[in-house]
Amino acid sequence: MEILFYLLAIVAIASALGVVLSKNPVYSVLSLICTFFAIAAQYILLNAQFLAAVHIIVYAGAIMVLFLFVIMLLNLNILVETQRFTTARLTAAFTGGLLCLVLIAALRSAGDIKAANPANAKIGLIENLGMTLFNQYLLPFEVSSLLFLAAMVGAVVLAKKEIA
């Protein structure tokens, strides 16, 4: 189980680096899908089975297909990207590394991060999540449906060809 965690972590980090470093956007999309599957496996290791299923359906099934469609429709896979200067790229990498250190330091000193009570394996099951979602967070749930409607209408209006 521990070995599986480290293996999945290495896969996730390596394919995340692939997203950033590969020249061709199609390879970036494929690396990102690999990262998403590694993260979904981490969810399963954390006993969040329902969330893992939703993650795969939403990300690998919907969002990444959208990305691939746009890349294929616009023929971006043959596009050559102009590179930033080497100094700018090095600065970006350095800034990212510093941010990583700051995040780790801040999160580790955030307080007592020992497990509060014995781990409950039933937390991630759909029964518990549904109770929480529809009792405590009913209003945000309804508002989010409104957000989705707005996003859908916005996407259709923006992508529509203008009628002259």
Binding site: S28, L76, R89, T95, L99, C100, L107
Partner: peptide
């Protein structure tokens, strides 16, 4: 915490480093 900080920092680095909007 280490894993998610590293992933987040890789994302920030990508935003700073790349020029392609899809990426």
């Amino acid at each position: 915490i280490y894993l998610s900080s590293i992933l987040f920092a890789i994302g920030v680095t990508g935003v700073l480093m790349r020029r392609n909007m899809i990426v």
